[in-house]
Nucleic acid binder design. Sequence first.
RNA 1: CGGGAUGUAGCGUAGCCCGGUUAUCGCGCCUGGUUUGGGACCAGGAGGUCGCAAGUUCGAAUCUUGCCAUCCCGACCA
Length: 491
Amino acid sequence: MSKAITTREADYSQWYNDLVIRGGLADYSAVRGCMVIKPYGYALWENMRDQLDKMFKATGHVNAYFPLFIPKSFLSKEAAHVEGFAKECAVVTHYRLKNDPDGNGIVVDPEAKLEEELIVRPTSETIIWNTYRDWIQSYRDLPLLINQWANVVRWEMRTRLFLRTAEFLWQEGHTAHASKEEAIEETKKMLDVYAEFVENYMAVPVIKGVKTPNERFAGAEDTYCIEALMQDGKALQAGTSHFLGQNFAKAFDVKFLNKDNSQEYVWATSWGVSTRLIGALIMAHSDDQGLVLPPRIAPLQVVIVPIYKGEDSKPVIDEKANAIVHALRAKGVSVKYDHHDNARPGWKFAEYELQGVPVRIALGLRDIEQNVAEIARRDTREKQTVSLEGIDAFVEKLLEDIQENMYHKAKGFRDSNIREANSWNEFVQLLDEKAGFVSAHWDGSGETEEKIKELTKATIRCIPLHNPQEAGNCILSGKPSSQRVLFARAY
RNA sequence: CGGGAUGUAGCGUAGCCCGGUUAUCGCGCCUGGUUUGGGACCAGGAGGUCGCAAGUUCGAAUCUUGCCAUCCCGACCA
């Protein structure tokens, strides 16, 4: 393993790839566009998943599981939906293999063609709404608040580790409601859950907003999103929550009997976040030394590295270190004592920095004589000497500080990279020279939006919620506009 | 899916143009020893379908064709 990772300045994309691979989060696989999530990366995902799952349960949702395969006819029932996904679906056409009669290994058995082809789910609205039809009879069956943790497949032409792979892990919530108002409330509630999770646990600040019709989820009436800013100034959609209106209820004939004994179509929402969040996490916080992980979701929060001086020092240091391990575990801190003799301290320091472990404690005889330890925090790379008395409380507090500091640092960066543009020239200049979000007036038309995208590669990331109303003129067309929207180049 | 680049041990590489002993070097790995406060040192050792498959040839890492994968740039998307 070579020592240095690519710096952000030298090659941002390569830096990102280096962190994912060398940080031990994931590997490329033998399958085009698909990645292997390694134990360290999966532990990170498990922490994210577990926390989100708690938050979903706390808001009244339950988990269920629907099939990986979707009959082709289902997908075509909602016109906008099929159009949105048709170009990236994997299709199962046969159900059996056989030995090649020419002796060249194994071939698809042409006799085993499926009557109706199956689509590997790119998302599950269709199979779920087809099922909900049977589950919903009356308003008493509503709301139906279901989430599923699953893998989905979208046949992407160009893939990037975590950010865009052909198969990825996610959760998709699918809810059914008796009224439009309640469904919209659910859509916004789950957006808030996502924002709370991403900000408080991942320490990544987000902007809540609504997508323009062009950027809307295929089949939705409204798509709400949280948008985050990466260190290279590109935006990344971190989560989406959709108000689906009655589109899927109508496509799958899902009706309920209301209190007045009349049939109504059900109102729907769906919402999801994926392993893409891991990409956001990496690009929001990490530095040229490696990953920087927020304590609240880091697979390992604290590592203790002993500094041995001769065989005699081992039992002394081990004893003190183990005492710290026990004290920290008692406080619910995840900690590892790396006493392995196959690497020297300097090597371990670099390795744990690469892996983004928030806190490192170095402990040697010299420290023990003075009843102290050296504590290094990953986010600022600062070191300090701390008394062994009450070191557990100190670390507990430090982890909170790191979490806070990471959020504020990311927020400071994000806030200083939202700029207003009041002319086309200024708009183009800001995008090219500063990147980040550009807040500008837009005339509200899809044509203008498309044109701006063509000219600058920037898209409207969102119309922020609670957006201040302000009269102005569209940056491109000059037509009147009532509010600014956020533009950025995006992942 | 279009353009460009790459693929030799776990990682990084030399060799390829101009075919010819046992495929080079460094890191890592194993054994033993000395070490340990920012990626240690000495000695010995193991590890290879040269991305895969055909072809040309007496002979292919090297030449030809096809395929696979990865990276970068476009079009598409979470």
